[in-house]
């Protein structure tokens, strides 16, 4: 269980995170979403114990992370910019990690390397960007930690690799309750693998929710109503409304079924109710919160 309480982090006069309160349950796959500069990387670095919060409390299973070796041995952080020691090979790197992570599984490491067709004995500086990313993921999985923090990790992988890595994560979650936190600005990337999502915006948490509840928490309706029917008379919690000719598009809170049955009472000539995509949901919430981020996720 990861808990942050009113965490703030500033660099000189730049406020990177402000008053962040988040809970991540064990065994969940948590997606950290946000625009560029929202504070995703800063939050991951705080969780990894690389930064120390200026204000607030940040604990993993009840213990503070900063300078706490016992906790840090149980987490693995995959930075968005990979760093490897100069002139080392993957095998040498694995042996280095063997000294750091008590549960590092060298056999699993070599198996995964073979599976991904990566050379064990070639210098890492000859690897492509994507190969380095794969190597980081393999090292992270072989480290056998309870938590793994991925900063834009999926973004540099090709579709086949991305799927393979997702499968590996799924297996680790099922087998031993691994808790991944995946930061990304790509919502579609997170939609299929995460069960909880936190949205960061301008250094703060806008919302944190179960992904399915989110999808079922609002619906998008396109309908054509008969002459004289008034959508406002239904008492629906309509957040967004748009009319083009006779076609009315609304986004309302409530499950899609509820919304559909309410509108049916008006005997619509045509009606289609769809759950929201994560993208639409976030745009809706950010607009309601008074931010204009309409164009940012497109």
């Amino acid at each position: 269980m990861i808990v942050t309480r009113n965490v703030s982090k500033t660099f000189n006069d730049v406020v990177a995170l402000h008053d962040v309160t988040l809970n991540v349950a064990k065994g969940a796959i948590f997606g950290l979403v946000g625009t560029n500069g929202a504070g995703k990387s800063t939050l991951l670095r705080l969780l990894a114990g690389i930064y120390r919060p200026n204000v607030g409390e940040l604990t993993i299973d009840g213990e503070s992370v900063w300078e706490n070796l016992a906790v840090k041995q149980r987490l693995y952080y995959i930075s968005d910019e990979q760093y490897f020691f100069a002139n080392t090979t993957p095998l040498e790197t694995a042996h280095y990690y063997l000294n750091i992570y008590p549960k590092f599984d060298i056999q699993r490491f070599t198996e995964l390397m073979t599976g991904f067709e990566l050379p064990l004995q070639r210098k890492i500086n000859t690897f492509s960007k994507g190969m380095k990313k794969q190597l980081s993921v393999i090292l992270g999985l072989a480290a056998n930690t309870d938590y793994i923090f991925c900063d834009e990790t999926f973004d540099g992988l090709d579709p086949v690799m991305r799927n393979a890595v997702k499968s590996l994560f799924a297996a680790e979650v099922a087998d031993r309750g691994l808790t991944p936190i995946i930061a990304s600005h790509n919502l579609r990337e997170l939609e299929d693998i995460c069960d909880h999502v936190g949205l960061l915006h301008r250094g703060g948490v806008l919302l944190e929710k179960d992904i399915d509840e989110m999808k079922l928490g609002a619906g998008k309706v396109q309908c054509v109503l008969p002459e004289g029917a008034d959508i406002e008379s239904l008492g629906l919690d309509i957040v967004v409304r748009d009319r083009r000719g006779s076609l009315l598009t609304i986004i309302a809170r409530g499950t899609p079924e509820e919304i559909a049955s309410r509108i049916s009472a008006l005997r619509p000539i045509f009606m289609e109710v769809l759950p929201l995509t994560l993208e639409e949901f976030f745009i809706m919430e950010t607009e309601v919160a008074g931010y204009d981020v309409k164009t940012l996720f497109i």
């Binding site: 499968s167 297996a171 693998i193």
Partner: peptide, 18 residues
């Protein structure tokens, strides 16, 4: 199995459990 399906479809095991 939850695990088998999660790996095969590359989706979250918690989703399958649900």
């Amino acid at each position: 199995s939850v695990r088998g399906l999660a790996v095969e479809l590359a989706i979250n095991p918690n989703t399958i459990q649900r």
